[in-house]
Design a protein around this nucleic acid. Sequence first.
RNA 1: CGGGGGGUAGCGCAGUUUGGCUAGCGCACAUGGUUUGGGACCAUGGGGUCGUGGGUUCAAAUCCCACCUCCCCGACCA
Length: 413
Amino acid sequence: MLLSKVFIPTLREDPKMAECISHKLMLKAGLVSMISSGIYTYLPLGLIILRKIENIIRRRMNEEGAVELLMSALQPLEIWQQTGRDETLKEVMLKVKDRRKRELCLGPTHEEEITEIAKRFILSYKQMPLILYQIQTKFRDEARPRFGLIRSCEFIMKDAYSFDSDEEGLNISYEKMLRAYDNIFRDMSFDFVRIEADPGAMGGNFSHEFMVPAEIGEDVLCFCPKCGKYYRSSGECRDCGIKLIEKRMIEIGHIFKLGTKYSSAQSAYFLDSKGKRRPVIMGCYGIGVSRIMPAIIEQSHDSKGIVWPPCVSAFDASLLVLERENDFLYKEAFSLYEKLTGAGFDILFDERAEPAGVKFNDAYLIGSPYIIIIGKKYKGHNKFELEVRKTGEKHLFAAEQLINFLKESHNGS
RNA sequence: CGGGGGGUAGCGCAGUUUGGCUAGCGCACAUGGUUUGGGACCAUGGGGUCGUGGGUUCAAAUCCCACCUCCCCGACCA
């Protein structure tokens, strides 16, 4: 992509409203823009990254046999009354009335709605096991939105729901999701923790949380500095007997065995092999998709900007021509751009007539894993300079070498 | 929801204590020129309901009242 043709409005100064690093960098790098407290627009660059994150999730969910659907964000309040959660979630639920005075809410989550789908279509044990998932916008009237996309009133979640005819089936589905989540967060290069959790208001009897350590985390876990194990309470390490240290964590995923809480309340019944009517056994599995971007940034940045792990970076590399009005250099740069694009790489080509400092700073801010530089020095040796964003390490390459280098790093990641 | 701090050009800010020339600065933006390996320079220019409403006054960004909104700490958080 040509930088002058894409809409990436980077900011020079730190935005005043941003308090934490990821929030600041997301605004500065032109990933998102705040519309109101807790409400954000994804700008084009942010959307590219969001899609990459979503697709990592899709790949792993599909791999475990989960099937994607898309439920409505607008939901009749009626289905919430059946489970009583119109009361338990009263505070966070955004409600509206339509012109016929029908009471609706903007879904804060989708257990009730998916259970309606199950009730309607899952009639026999032969239709299970089944795992359905969606990537959807949720709405919550948060008491205090904060940290940018970490806690917002409108956010994107991947929510999956498993349907089984017996406990054993539920255990298998749950294991599948545990595996998928481990893979997803590993794919995203997270330093993450998986820990048993309290099901809370979600209901059910068993639950795991996936968390990443970060200063701005809203949860606290205790960890053993020797073996690295995490605990919920601050005793001492069961293995090492060492005093634990508190660590702030961001919750990025949470999965639950629900059992029949929702299916019973909403009469989602099926007939088993003996023709007996029984409630479907459910599990639900959430990932805070819009929270992942800031969580990655919290874990991967430096004083100059974002350092994207290659798997979620919008671009494989940024390409800078420093002397824009030098026809020779521009032609060399453009031909390299075409070669790299032809080889299947996503390249952000900064061909603007801006001073070198502006281009370097934007490139560091945007955070592509590699920066390829064509300027004065190129005229000396006719080699392309490649800077590794993460380490600052520099290489000189001819075009073919450069392509091979990028291919290798691509396969490695 | 409790406590604290903010709102002046697209962004970042000064000015408000002590009311008074035409409301300023940096960046960005536009035009022309010089530049081009680290947010460059010169010249010219455009852009403002000073958060909103009401009040006090000869005179309000500045004082008074109400409201809106943003941020921080806490409570809450499937």
